[in-house]
Structures are given as C-alpha cells and as structure tokens.
Design a protein around this nucleic acid. Structure first.
Lengths: 349, 349
DNA sequence: GTGAAAGCGCTAACAT
DNA sequence: ATGTTAGCGCTTTCAC
C-alpha cells in the first residue's frame, strides 16, 4: 500500500481536534458533541477522507466482509449458489468476496491464503471444497468462523450445510422404477467432492430396494462434462441389452446423453428415459426438457450464512451438520418404460 | 480480528533471535546466515506460523491480490471472462478476488467499498461497470491501479479494454444482408452498460451501408433475458410484413426468439434467420445451434491484466483504450433469405 | 550478519 | 466531552 493520501490525522488537524475525537465522530460511538461531530465530518468530506479498513481490522474490528471459496466458479450450480449467498449476506449488511480456487486446496495454496484465515474476512464459506486432509485440519484448528457447504468426503468438526444427495438419487431412481424401468444405468462424475459417490450410493440403494440386479457395464465413469456423458451413453447404447433409462450424476452429462441418443436415433423419452441432477438452466433449454433433481440452493445459502453469522457474532453454533432434501423436477425426458403398462394407463384403457 | 494466534514475535522467541532476523529469514531478503534462516523456518513450521498479510500491507507491501468487480456474476459472459482473468493473474503469481456488485455502483456502495481502493488489493478490474459519474470520478482521482473492461458509456482517463461491439454488430448484420436478407429486425437489451447501444449502432450502420430502410417496429426493446426475447419476437412475427432475420443484442434473447418461432410454427432458419451475441454455452446446446458473435475473452483478459500489472509495478501505462474485434461463429440458425438465389446456389443449379 | 527503534492508521482504555 | 497513551504485526532505517 502506498501511503494513504488522506488519513484521520489530517481530518483531525483540519477540524482542529485530536485524532481520537475525529475517530469517534466518524464511527459514531462514544461521546462527541454534535458540534464537533459536524465539524469533523465536514472536514472529512472536504478532504475526501476514506477510512482505512486494514488499520481498523488490526485493532480488532470487523471488516463486514465474508469470503466464499469455490473450487469451480464456472460450474452453473456453484454460480447459482454464490448468487444466493450474495443476496443472503446483504440481509446482515455484509459484503461477499469470492475466491475461485480452481482445483484442490493444498498446503501450498494454504500458505498463500494465510490471509484468508486472518483478518481480511470476518468469516469464510467453503463451497464444495476439494482439499487435502492437512488443509482441512488447519481449518479445524483455526479459530475463524468457517462453514463448509456440500462437503461430504469425511467427518469434520466444522459446521456443514449440504444437500441430501443420497436420498435424492434414491428417489430419482425409485421414480424410474415405478415407471416400469428395470434396466437402469448410472453415469458417475469425478470423485473429487464426494457428490458423485453419494449419488451412486443412492442409485444402488434404490435398485437394491426393488431387488434389481445391476449389470456391471451399467455403471459408467464420466467427468461431469457434456462430452463425457455423450461418450458414456454411446457405450451404454452399444450393448445388446440396452438400458431403458439412465440416471446421470449431473445435468451436463444427461444432455450429453441426449446428443448420443439423437446420433443413434434413439428416441428420448420413448426409448430412453434420462434424469440429470442439479437443474442447471440448460436443463430447461434442451428439447426434450430434462427431468432432474434440484437442491434448494436458496435455503442452503440461508442456512450457511445464518450459521456463519452466529459464529461471527460469537453466539453458540447451532447444529453441526444440516442436510436439505432435494426436489424432483419432472420434465419431458422421462416416460414409462416401453411396453410397460402403468397403473394410469390401465385405468385409461 | 481476534488476536492472531502465532506471530513473528513468537517464532523469533522460539528460534532465539530478534523479530527482525526472523522477518528477514521468512521473507528471504536481507542478509541472514543460512544457519539462522533454517532455525527460524523450523520454528515457524513447528508453531504453524502464518504471516499476517494485513500488517505487511500496512507497512507498504503488496498483497498480491487483484480484485475484480462485476455487476452480474450470473451472466455467462461475465463468468467466462472472470474465469479467463483467474487463469491470467496466475501467470503473475497473483490471486484474484471477485466482488459481485449486483447493480449500480453509487456513492453509498463507494463508502462501504473504501477498502476496495485502499490496501486490500494491489489493483482493481471493473468488468462491465454500471456506475454513477461520481463513482467514476472517485476512481479517476484514486491513485490505485485500475482497469475498466467493456466500459463505453463515456470517456474516461482510466485505461479501458473492450470488445468492439459496433463493428461486430455491423459484420453480423452485413452477413445477413449478403445472404439476401432485407427485412432485418433488431432486439435491444437494457441500456445500462452501453453494450446494447453500440450493437444497435452497428446494426443501423450496416442497414444504412446497404441502403436499407429500417421499419419502426423492427427495433424491439428487450431486457437481455430469454423471456424478453421470446416476447419481442412474438411481436415481430405478429406483423404482416415479417422480418426474415433477427439480430439480437445477446444469445439469451435469440434463444427466446427460437422459442417464439417454434410456438408460431415458423421454421428456423428456413423462414427466419437468427443471430445472437456472446456465444454463451447454451448457444451450442439449442437446436438449431445458434449463429452468434464472440468476443475474444481470453485475449481481453490478458490485455486487462497486463495493463493492470504494468500500473501495479509502476511501469508506464501503455495504451489508454484497446479494442478487440469479435469473431463470427456461424452455426445453424442462419440461412439465405427465402426465395433468394445466392451465388453458391446459382453455381450448383 | 544481527538487533533496536520507529511507525504504518486506527481505536480501546484510561485520564482529564 | 475531549485528549493521551499504547499497541495490533510487520518492515524500513540505521546502528552495532
């Protein structure tokens, strides 16, 4: 920082009072006569004075700034969540700064981010963090207010707000099963955040609940990208015994599946039902519109900020882990399995 | 800031040296014997010492952090640009923090953001800023390194990096005209950032260049949203003399046009050509895939960071305003006007 | 090579 | 109601 142009000292000098009086006049607390207060504020305005937040912080004050660390800002879900956070922090008169870590948080980044832990922020929210165990331990040791969002890789003493991926996935697949599907495939994403694993667990549970065997090749590895979904789907459709439905660990991969289906002249949803996850905006743009699972991002943002503010204000934390149920958004990419007579149809007939 | 747990003083004590020696050992400059250096660093590691960036800054150091202020992070273009910036700043070993201003920057926000100008950041990038004149003037007076991106509302002494909206729009419309279109409509976006106005200027120029009259109702007001594009298109298609092509101020509105066309059973591109602007990811997801104009975001990010770093390092600024030409991305939503015999077709026939 | 002192801008705690 | 003192954690300056 180059020397600050205009400081409290100068304001005080111009107003003809001590620095302390000026400080009191500006911050508003402590006893100052209305007279001097006005005088000081006039001087401040004339000089174009702006308080130095750093100095204030060094004395133990708050910055009224919350930091949020995300591992991939270009992800539509993350972006939507950050928007929800931005709105939410305003209710507490706080500001939000976003840091895009782009990948794994390790010791090296931690070194560079020491400032993240000390002073610049009143509190920190980690969204879908991918971090080494050392990093997490450092966070746990730190006394700064911290909230983790959608962190499910291992247990931690830090407060966690998350969407319930397991039950959402189970519901999605159970929905397909109730529409007569028996040959249901799953396309995984990368394992980094643990989200995909939870969704796979839900898939397997639903299949087990219905006493359906899972063929080895029904579980395909993807990378959360549209391209990877397209390739995985092509592999699935190449087999003799094609699945009649695919549950994808996210929407992008499901959209990739649509592309693959179109290329192979497989009709969606008549011949192939598709369910994605996340309800990104593209899900309602593609045709047929994509059926998908949606986390209640605004509620989750609210919970995360609430919990963080409690810690910032020194109030006791409430719950260690809160989990929110997802909502199923039924659109056009799912239909009863071909040749299936559902109850509704029976009634009609 | 609660008192920092472990400071240089403690490290120095543990290593049995003075604070100053410890400081030198950690930062690496100044003369320190290898011996003491190792001793100090060992002590630092053992204690889990992390330097306090704030204190360092207060003494005149750099934070190695660049701030970027955007007015709408949920915008796909802004998001893509921020990603490009994130990558770019890494080349300079800097970190990037993002602030989502969500709307107009005025005096009130300025008050709260004094910290933006002093100390926390080595430099600031404003992307597509919407700000009052007072705010801009404060920025111009400030001595902090600042770069504006895509700011075209009025002249300024600050360095500006921008995409050439005018020529891009002219090229887009000229392209339609060369395909035989004569009845070409334009859907504007909101006027806030001045982008839409530039694109409209390019549209009008191209029409004038080709001596084509613009019907009053061909220029429709939208809000950059898909919904608004759909409505505007419905209005355009309701007229007797329908346009054969629509140039939209952004992709979302063009996608809205597709929806309107589908509802009214108008074939795209056979009966209606569509061009958007920005090349957002949805542009290649919709069918038919959208023809659009693309700003060279990575190049622009590079230029912005370069210029900012020059100022941070105290080197002379290079150019005051740099403008980058856009690229036309031809996909499936444009075709020769119905009944037009283009040269290529003539040759075929 | 290493250390002591001063001070960045601000405010909490104590005087007056 | 106002002023004085001290100190947050660090680095620059100058002394040893």
């Amino acid at each position: 920082m180059k020397k600050q142009s205009v400081t409290l000292v100068q304001v005080a000098a111009k107003a003809g009072v001590s620095v302390m009086t000026a400080s009191r006049a500006m911050s508003g607390d402590g006893y100052v006569s209305e007279d001097t207060k006005a005088k000081v504020q006039a001087a401040a305005k004339a000089l174009g004075y702006a308080p130095n937040a750093l100095a204030r912080v060094m004395k133990g004050g708050r910055t009224n700034v919350i930091g949020v660390v995300v591992n991939d800002l270009s992800s539509v879900v993350v972006n939507a969540f950050v928007s929800a956070l931005t709105e939410e922090v305003r209710k507490y008169e706080m500001d939000l700064f976003i840091y895009n870590s782009v990948g794994q948080l390790d010791e090296q980044t931690q070194r560079r981010h020491s400032q993240l832990l000390h002073g610049l922020w009143d509190g920190l929210i980690y969204v879908l963090p991918r971090m080494t165990d050392e990093y997490l331990e450092a966070l746990e040791r730190s006394e700064s207010p911290i909230v983790l969002v959608n962190f499910c890789r291992r247990e931690t003493t830090l407060p966690v707000v998350q969407g319930d991926n397991f039950n959402a996935a189970r519901d999605a697949v159970a929905g397909l099963i109730s529409q007569g599907h028996k040959r249901i495939a799953f396309i995984k994403g990368t394992h980094w955040t643990g989200q995909s694993a939870e969704r796979e667990r839900g898939y397997r549970q639903a299949m087990a609940d219905a006493h359906l065997q899972i063929d080895d090749h029904w579980v395909q590895q993807g990378t959360f990208s549209e391209q990877s979904g397209q390739e995985a789907c092509a592999r699935l459709l190449a087999h003799d015994a094609r699945p009649t439905a695919i549950f994808c660990a996210n929407d992008e991969m499901a959209i990739g599946c649509m592309n693959a289906a179109r290329e192979l002249n497989v009709q969606v949803p008549e011949e192939l039902s598709l369910i994605g996850f996340d309800d990104v905006s593209a899900a309602s743009i593609v045709r047929p519109q994509l059926t998908t699972m949606r986390h209640p991002l605004p509620l989750m943002a609210q919970a995360a900020v609430q919990e963080l503010m409690r810690r910032i204000l020194g109030q006791p934390g409430k719950r260690q882990r809160v989990e929110f149920p997802a909502e199923m958004v039924v659109r056009e990419s799912t239909a009863p399995a071909a040749g299936t007579v559902t109850k509704r149809r029976t009634r009609k007939a």
